[in-house]
Simulated scan of single mutants.
Amino acid sequence: MPERVQERGPEREQEPAGGGPLRAFGLAEVYNPSMVPTLRPGDQLVVHYGASVRPGDVVVLRHPFRQDLLIVKRAVERRDGGWWVQGDNPYVTNDSREFGVVPDELVIARARLRVRPPRGIQRSPRAALSWVLSAVRPVRADRSLSRRLRAR
């Protein structure tokens, strides 16, 4: 099954000039398990279009062979010609191990926040509060993970 993300927001190329700082943000939904345990299918991502990318960042990019397909990966390191990207799930290899370095112009956004949808109905205020406290998390660059991925 191919990796994919559904994008819900403006793209850099379509942004009107002077659209304001919030126009640079959008939503993406994760559909596949390539980023487990960091991201799970069904998670929503708040993404920042045109943000600078550093090693360890989670990014949304166009698949190099199917540019109509958006995927979420971790930017592991800069190489000649672009970024080496990998998923956090070692059992899914739909990443640079399969398609090589990704050119900079195909990296379209950097993930800032993960919003995990509720699993079932929250029946008590305590359960709802527990979900709120765990559902919204910043997506941070994991430097130690990017080093481990490079070592593979």
Score class of each variant (00 low, 15 high):
113 L>T: 05
81 G>I: 08
99 F>Q: 01
113 L>G: 07
88 D>F: 14
69 L>T: 15
122 Q>D: 05
88 D>W: 15
101 V>K: 00
82 G>Y: 12
97 R>N: 14
126 R>V: 11
104 D>Y: 04
109 A>R: 10
91 Y>D: 15
89 N>Y: 11
114 R>V: 14
76 V>K: 07
84 W>I: 05
85 V>I: 10
113 L>M: 14
113 L>D: 08
121 I>P: 03
90 P>H: 12
108 I>P: 03
71 I>D: 08
75 A>T: 07
101 V>L: 00
72 V>F: 01
87 G>H: 09
126 R>D: 05
90 P>C: 09
126 R>K: 09
114 R>Y: 07
118 P>Y: 02
102 V>S: 11
68 D>W: 05
92 V>Y: 14
109 A>T: 11
92 V>E: 15
95 D>T: 10
104 D>R: 01
74 R>E: 12
113 L>Y: 15
98 E>T: 12
115 V>N: 05
99 F>L: 01
125 P>V: 09
75 A>G: 09
68 D>Y: 01
103 P>C: 03
95 D>V: 05
79 R>D: 01
124 S>F: 01
118 P>W: 04
109 A>G: 07
106 L>N: 09
123 R>D: 04
75 A>V: 06
126 R>Y: 04
119 R>L: 12
115 V>R: 12
120 G>H: 06
75 A>S: 08
116 R>G: 03
67 Q>W: 03
86 Q>R: 13
104 D>E: 15
77 E>G: 08
80 D>H: 04
74 R>V: 12
113 L>H: 14
121 I>V: 14
